[in-house]
Nucleic acid binder design. Structure first.
Ligand code: FES
Ligand code: FES
Lengths: 145, 145
DNA sequence: ATTATACCCTACTATTTTTGTCAACATTCA
DNA sequence: TGAATGTTGACAAAAATAGTAGGGTATAAT
């Protein structure tokens, strides 16, 4: 039950952009380098995020990408769902078409629903702003010691 | 982020065996038929569950499989972890070897940890007994209507 | 205008994981 | 014995993932 690299790389990239929020467009190669990802591959992910309205882009020299909204208005759920689709342990809790063919109600489905709901609760409650705050906290703690 | 068929089929099979708990060994082909799964494939899953000590087997004619412990002592987590390994969105929250190479603390890792923990909480809190009870509840409601 | 930079788009491929299949063998019961 | 069942390991088809490749388009600096 791993996330694919799409979701993992995507969240990293979005976090990186959140760090630079308000500082104008950031070129993709700098993101790719900082997070050690293939620029070509990252392009694909970023294109998806842009279409979803989570990113804006500026073309031309000195261009790049920037968050389309403030970090506090973008959740981890927004990002992961854009890149991975709904996060759930089985298709049947997303689309009724995939329900199993048992006549009586399916008991395992209740389990999948509870897993899905608990994941949703987590990813919808964390924003990029929260991640920035966490990062700050870590730095602060390090300074104290 | 789907579970593979291993976990999904495996939980179904274990639930089925829980329904027959105390009634002696159940042959695999009856399980496969009731849940509409390939018997050959199910064999592999069941072998894994047996090695983990969740099932007992009886060879020979009139043989079959049975839960090694009462339904209230087997959790969904026991079953899914046996068949799928730890349930987590990224390898780095399971094995430090896979941590990304950033010097500073990784912020996305905190997100993966929260997802992992919330999944763990759900799967460790549901036993096969709970599933049997749920099933009963559904039947009762149906009778009422 | 030219050039460099950077986004945009589509198609393709290598790899890995998943999802089984199959055959030969061992054990038990009637 | 013979039929029913579990045990094991090798193999293979299919699907998903991860990444490459390369051409095209828009913009800005010069
Ligand atoms: S409806 Fe999803 S497993 Fe039955
Ligand atoms: S340590 Fe897991 S993503 Fe960085």
């Amino acid at each position: 039950m791993r996330l694919s690299t799409r979701g993992r790389y995507g969240l990293k990239a979005m976090y990186q952009l959140a760090c630079y929020y308000g500082e104008g467009p950031i070129p993709l190669n700098s993101i790719a380098e900082e997070q050690d990802l293939s620029e070509n591959y990252l392009e694909q992910l970023v294109a998806t995020l842009r279409k979803e309205g989570l990113l804006n882009s500026v073309r031309g020299a000195q261009g790049g990408y920037m968050l389309a909204k403030p970090p506090e208005d973008i959740t981890v759920g927004n990002i992961l769902r854009t890149l991975e689709g709904d996060l759930a342990p089985a298709d049947c809790v997303i689309d009724e078409e995939y329900e199993c063919a048992k006549e009586e109600s399916c008991v395992t489905k209740l389990v999948w629903m509870r897993i899905r709901d608990s994941i949703d609760e987590v990813i919808d409650s964390i924003t990029l702003k929260d991640m920035l705050d966490e990062s700050e906290k870590i730095v602060t703690n390090k300074t104290k010691n």
